[in-house]
Design a protein around this nucleic acid. Structure first.
Lengths: 144, 144
DNA sequence: CATGATAATAGGAATCATTCTCACTAAATG
DNA sequence: CATTTAGTGAGAATGATTCCTATTATCATG
């Protein structure tokens, strides 16, 4: 986490956004937890040190600034994680039972296959494709 | 829509679920609208004929029974559409700007490529894959 | 075709994640 | 140091969705 801080700070100050103690802690917590996490999970992980209102605002700001990425789970709850320039490009395994989410990193060939699929499938639509999401649904070890 | 009704009715009665006027109308409306729609959209499309509470319950029941499928959009709202045994297997184009969602049907080869990716990527995890979701993000013609 | 058993409806209240408001505080800049 | 601007915290507000309860419709069959 200390190794990512300089780049984070640089990126934030470039946009006039301050890296305060609470935000530092939010990022560190998220980095320590590893996968996509909900605001509630982060909140309790930090022992309620950061009020939910502030936490949500910080998460939004950091996501906006490209430090974090957010995903809407199939349970309707938003989960946050470090952006891909920290974690590397990846996709998700999602437990259909409990909503827990884990990262999977595709091999270069797999990723190539995916981008090709995107191109092909968006080709004859009036849609400008900007990205893709490939999510594998299943049961985690706890719910199986 | 009349051509799908017999199979719907059969499927429902098999589980002791009644196909009432409101549910018939809900399904017909959804079929007419074509893509994934929110409860609010269906509600206003039917001229508020079906109260939201009833509509939500019906949508849940029908989804449970496998008549409909539901998806959580990136705007945190649930959208419903006819299940794949009516519409055929397909994936989604999602507008990152307004959340509107459209269907795309993969070719058999594309689908084969996808299922292979699922198998490969879930192979060395303690996760039992049951399905996948491949969503193409972009801008719809209205938001471009 | 009457009757009970059960499922469905309607309307409103309740939930819960998320967002907003606003007064207050901390940080950066000159 | 003063000023400006961003950030914080507490709670209220929002909005989609779910739950509750009394009432009504539907179904199977006697």
């Amino acid at each position: 986490m200390q190794h990512i801080e300089p780049s984070v700070e640089q990126r934030l100050t470039a946009e006039g956004i301050r890296l305060t103690g609470g935000r530092r802690r939010t990022i560190a917590t998220l980095a320590a937890m590893g996968g996509p996490r909900t605001a509630a999970e982060i909140h309790s992980e930090t022992g309620d040190a950061i009020p939910l209102s502030t936490l949500y605002r910080s998460l939004a700001v950091l996501t906006d600034a490209g430090i974090l990425a957010s995903h809407h789970g199939s349970d309707g709850v938003i989960r946050f994680e470090l952006a891909e320039w920290f974690t590397g490009h990846h996709h998700h395994l999602i437990c259909v039972e409990c909503g827990a989410t884990f990262d999977v990193t595709p091999t270069p060939e797999q990723e190539r296959a995916m981008t090709q699929l995107v191109e092909e499938m968006a080709a004859d639509t009036d849609f400008t494709a900007t990205g893709h999401r490939f999510e594998i649904e299943g049961l985690c070890s706890a719910c199986r």
